[in-house]
Design a protein around this nucleic acid. Structure first.
Lengths: 154, 154
DNA sequence: CTTGACCTTCCCATGATGGGAAGCCCTATC
DNA sequence: GATAGGGCTTCCCATCATGGGAAGGTCAAG
């Protein structure tokens, strides 16, 4: 199996398969005479394991841990559960963080007329108080165009 | 005000203030004779605006848009509301995605004994079927140590 | 005059992924 | 046999937002 076929069989892009090999997450693939990587069912199985772990939000580092536990037949299931439990806690923390943002934003959006008039509680909140940006001493427009952000996309 | 004071007053690190200037999110600060950046209240106000927008999860690109709207006195509040609404939708999409992960993980963790024995439904799920990694034809351990991931931290 | 705390610019790293160039290999078609 | 196309290789670069740190200039206090 070439890398393209292994990619199709595992759902991991060829680019990522090479990357996983480079960082040592998977063992270096065997090579044919023409220097092509060759894969068997076992390697594809490992790639699918990684793919599944990634889809559950595990980092590559956590995935490495899980992969080692998977291959360690004398593992204790508590070790696996610990990794999963820590990951759940991390996800829940991030979910709560984002839910807080959503709550605030929904409140602000609800209070915003969303019409042709300029008064906007969303901007008022972002500004901290209700004042406009350049009212005290500055020349006014402080955003001079995000050239690097908006233009350098290709 | 030097950059350190502006940083303390705004909550934005000096590193980030320089970066925001570099990418054009904020106007280049005035300089003193010794080439130090100087900031006034208006600039700090802008930095706080950015800080608040970031804390609500807006990207720098979205923040740029909001900043321009803030400074555009003839804006229509609907434009601001549109940005916020799109961001809320994005957050909710990501929250739902993570909640799906949590749901699956909690189910698996619930089914896992978490004891000294090796059988583990979490690993079984990641493996797709119930088989072990190297059972078909491979030499066994496919994770050869994530040297780049685990060792190169400094 | 030294020390320490600032400031400056410049380069590099993160995490996980994609894009793309330059070049080699194989197969199918003309 | 030549050529076209597609797949493979390595290598470099980009993302997004942020931090670390080096090398060197500047300033104020001791």
């Amino acid at each position: 199996m070439n890398i393209g076929e292994a990619s199709a069989a595992s759902g991991v892009s060829a680019k990522m398969i090479r990357y996983y090999e480079e960082i040592g997450l998977v063992r270096p693939a065997a090579r044919t005479g023409n220097n092509y990587r060759v894969y068997g069912e076992a390697e594809v199985h490992v790639l699918r394991f990684i793919k599944r772990a990634r889809s559950l939000g595990f980092s590559l580092e956590e995935t490495e841990t899980l992969l080692k536990l998977w291959q360690d037949k004398s593992r204790e299931s508590s070790a696996v559960k610990d990794v999963a439990t820590a990951h759940i806690a991390d996800l829940e923390r991030r979910i709560a963080e984002m839910q807080g943002m959503v709550k605030t934003l929904k409140h602000l959006a609800h209070c915003c007329g969303g019409n042709h008039r300029p008064d906007c509680p969303i901007l008022d909140d972002l500004a901290g108080d209700g004042s406009a940006p350049g009212d005290s001493s500055a020349p006014g427009d402080s955003a001079a165009g995000l050239s690097r952000i908006s233009a350098d996309r290709h």
